[in-house]
Design a protein around this nucleic acid. Sequence first.
DNA 1: ACCAAGCTTATGCATCTGCATATACTTCTC
DNA 2: GAGAAGTATATGCAGATGCATAAGCTTGGT
Lengths: 127, 127
Amino acid sequence: MSDDPTVQAWRRLLAQHAAATCALDRELGDLHGLSVSEFEVLERLVEAPEKLRIQELASEIHLSQSATTRVVARLEKDGLLCRTMCDMDRRGVYACISDDGRARYAEARPTQRRVLGEQLDGAPAAV
Amino acid sequence: MSDDPTVQAWRRLLAQHAAATCALDRELGDLHGLSVSEFEVLERLVEAPEKLRIQELASEIHLSQSATTRVVARLEKDGLLCRTMCDMDRRGVYACISDDGRARYAEARPTQRRVLGEQLDGAPAAV
DNA sequence: ACCAAGCTTATGCATCTGCATATACTTCTC
DNA sequence: GAGAAGTATATGCAGATGCATAAGCTTGGT
């Protein structure tokens, strides 16, 4: 039923996610040439003390391992991060933000914060 | 920063959405042959007093108009709903649930409710 | 009544995603 | 230390989605 509290929470979740993701995709894309996933990757790399492995990134941004590989490949092609082999475990790959990546992130962050504020603040709380 | 409450809310939103959507997609797909979007469409049609137009569905399920057209086309091909022209406005198309659609929804609903309970109940509240 | 403008759905196209699998490396067992 | 099993990333492929646009219908101004 629609009055099941769990279902209500689920619909709020879907509505908030759709609104925020849609607005972010438009604004980050138009203003900074970044998708939501790409922004999230840059943010994690900026916050990380060092560099992150593909797998750590994948679980941070809630993307499959293969999708994460591809986001990282796109960002590397754009020069926003670099991939390096992991010496300890040569199967592993590190992603490390570049100066251009840092700059792009610094430029995009206020936009993301503004859009999040518009979309999430004042929205009804979930669960 | 990670301690910005709005950013925290955003990350909770992403995490909950990813977990719930992923679990639902797997269980609804494996057990009932439905995607999350397809289930949501059926649910709206079951709840609707009559039938719904494509556009109304689109805004209900937070999908673009074109994606909604395609979900409805898939469900019609599977015999779970039928499309009929709208007499008042012959541009419009109504989607109306079929008996098979009602049955599939009735079968899938407990699964969806169970998964939502597992994924959302007890999760930290947002915003 | 006609024509322009607007609205509703359908479709071409590019992109992103996940699953399954391939490849390369590591670890465990013997 | 060789082989089996397990792990990390990359890639082929199919499917879902959004944007731009097409096609058909309606409405309003004249």
